[in-house]
Nucleic acid binder design. Structure first.
Lengths: 161, 161
DNA sequence: ATCAAATTGACAGCATGTTGTCAATATGAT
DNA sequence: ATCATATTGACAACATGCTGTCAATTTGAT
């Protein structure tokens, strides 16, 4: 078989990709264990955060849009969160179906707990690493993401089109 | 609320984490579209690669171990691949149940196609990026992963313990 | 005011990964 | 040789995400 020449950039990039997969997995796992005893999972935590993100209560579809997740994915999680009493629905004067989602007291409490813990966790994770290096790494990764996502329309709702 | 001081490292790290999530998603999506018309998905492609990785055919459990995925996840994919005719099972002289998995001709063909395409793809993705920068980014990410994974035993099989 | 198009939640089906349980099979200590 | 333990695949339940379809509701152009 003929040897295919591979550029240095490509070789480095292949390594980077593998490391990104690895870190992604590690982060999800860490996130889960970080909040599991608060009765949360990474996904629920994320959605809870997405809901709390805006001052005004919004419909599920809007939250999803902002979070870059599909409408239905968020919908399901919200349903779960509602069952768990961390979230409640408010009538929407503008739209009969699209009720407004907001955190319950309990939801706020849990999210605050998670956030606090997360802050300490990141602090620990970043300890002794050079902020410059970290920022540079983020730049490279952003560049790669943009290259991948840039070409296609950044659609995230129903692909009904 | 009292403002919590946050170190520069932690701030950078938070940004990096978000970018890693973003790139991870972009990579999966790119991977899927890269091989979809070959009749593969990212997951199947990965497993196919894991099987081809060793010279000797191995049982599913071993492949899973090597890939850092759970035994059952790989098992299910392998079952699918078998149905699709990309993989076949060979009797294992050492173990009656743990049959050996190997690629069929067709499986090899598809994998080769995917690999070739992937090489070009990475080349394009890395184009104009400094290999040094990429390598540095990978280092930072590796450091973070190690910090997260390092503490716990790197177990990946049944947690029956 | 009317009617086509967009938005939205409900429901359902699929892909992927995890975990737990079970039975068959090896392995290893005695 | 025997028996506890580990490995392994099958099966099932669950979490998470995606997509498609449908009906209710809004919106907007006319």
């Amino acid at each position: 078989m003929k040897i295919k020449p591979t550029s240095d950039s490509a070789k480095s990039m292949t390594g980077l990709i593998l490391e990104v997969f690895r870190l992604n997995g590690a982060l999800l796992e860490a996130g889960d264990s970080l909040v599991s005893d608060i009765g949360l999972t990474s996904a629920r935590w994320q959605v809870l955060g997405g809901i709390a993100y805006s001052d005004e209560p919004r419909p599920v579809a809007w939250v999803a849009q902002d979070m870059g997740l599909s409408r239905q994915a968020v919908q399901r999680i919200v349903n779960d969160l509602k069952k768990a009493g961390l979230v409640e629905l408010q009538p929407n004067p503008r739209h009969a179906r699209a009720k407004l989602v907001l955190l319950t007291k309990e939801g706020q409490r849990r999210l605050a707990q998670a956030s606090e813990r997360q802050a300490k966790w990141v602090e620990e994770l970043a300890k002794d690493l050079d902020p410059e290096d970290i920022a540079n790494a983020a730049s490279v990764i952003t560049a790669a993401s943009n290259r991948l996502l840039g070409e296609k329309s950044i659609r995230r709702q129903d692909p009904k089109t």
